[in-house]
């Protein structure tokens, strides 16, 4: 078997020719690994970016490769172990930070080099339209009286962590009702089966405009356009400054610096494209660009924050 593999690999190498040089990068299509099945937020935003990238790449394309499994871990691991030649990128989100810490994923966040970031989605506290809580003050006052039921995606996700951060910051406790998909969360909120939700702003915005839910507070540094009356978490006294879902690109560690710069610049051009911005805005994703350096800092901060909350809340890797 091994010999056969060697023969096949040798033949393959002969056909492909010499290893790719950074100078003529990119000379073929670039794979963007989305570690989920098609249809989710990461997949949709990645596809929009790939479509826009066609304008800048002269016939070369960014191909979306969906690698699902293990809540993102399978695809993330695949990307972490890919050849660092710039032809495999990962569509990276917060879960790449938390999975190694909480799920025992077999990679480290430092196995990736950040390329750039295209959305920052601040976390919000939302309540059903029928809820008695009109303001964040009502909400927090009730939270001090009893444990409110908060719906959020699974244990250990950044949304759950946001709730834990509020617990630490405002000295309250929540009961978490987790979900295995956004449909369940929306159902629980629109039907008024829970007291509130921890959601990214993009999703919450659509629901608030549609009229089923109400946003009480947003975890950004300043208030969001279109929702100027909604206070920030900081101002509402939650004791948590900013909290966000980020989405961006990363490559395996060891990718040549020129390649990272090329991709980072490409993402900058994509995020500046009006058509792309319009579609992202419509779908609810706030477009923010950060270059490789800025994104690396965002990821590092997330890592520190996650570890701190795990520590203070006594969360550990389950075996």
């Amino acid at each position: 078997m091994k010999m056969l593999k060697c023969v096949v690999l040798a033949a393959a190498a002969a056909v492909v020719g010499a290893p790719v040089h950074a100078a003529d990068y990119p000379s073929r299509n670039i794979d963007l690994v989305v570690p989920f099945n098609p249809g989710g937020a990461v997949d949709t935003t990645s596809r929009m970016a790939a479509e826009t990238a066609k304008k800048f790449l002269n016939g070369i394309e960014i191909k979306i490769i969906n690698k699902d499994g293990g809540g993102g871990v399978v695809g993330q691991t695949f990307a972490a172990r890919a050849k660092p030649d710039g032809y495999t990128m990962l569509a990276i989100t917060n879960s790449a930070v938390s999975s190694p810490l909480l799920k025992g994923a077999p990679f480290k966040i430092t196995d990736f080099t950040a390329v750039g970031l295209y959305t920052i989605d601040p976390e919000v506290i939302a309540v059903p339209d029928t809820s008695p809580f009109k303001t964040i003050t009502d909400f927090m006052a009730a939270a001090k009286q009893r444990k409110l039921n908060i719906v959020s995606s699974g244990a250990g996700t950044s949304h759950h962590m946001a709730g834990l951060a509020i617990e630490l910051g405002a000295k309250v406790e929540f009961t978490y009702v987790f979900s295995r998909g956004f449909g369940e969360e929306l159902q629980a909120m629109l039907g008024g089966h829970v007291d509130g939700a921890l959601w990214p702003f993009g999703i919450a915005k659509q629901q608030a405009v549609g009229g089923g839910t109400r946003i009480l507070a947003v975890a950004s540094n300043e208030s969001m356009p279109g929702f100027e009356s909604v206070p920030t978490w900081e101002k509402s006294g939650l004791g948590v400054p900013a909290w966000q879902t980020f989405r961006g690109w990363a490559v395996p560690k060891g990718t040549p610096q020129e390649v990272v710069t090329f991709l980072s610049d490409l993402l900058k051009k994509i995020t500046a494209e009006p058509d792309y911005r319009a579609k992202m805005d419509k779908a609810g994703f706030p477009v923010v660009y950060r270059n490789a350096e800025g994104f690396a800092k965002t990821i590092a901060e997330e890592d520190v924050l996650t570890r701190r909350i795990m520590n203070e809340k006594g969360l550990t890797l389950k075996k």
Partner: peptide, 21 residues
């Protein structure tokens, strides 16, 4: 806007690509 199964999640994606919710 509640996706009931994996197929309807893909409908959402197709709508989002067209800038619809």
């Amino acid at each position: 806007g509640i996706p009931g199964n994996s197929v309807s999640a893909l409908f959402i994606a197709a709508l989002a690509i067209q800038g619809m919710v």
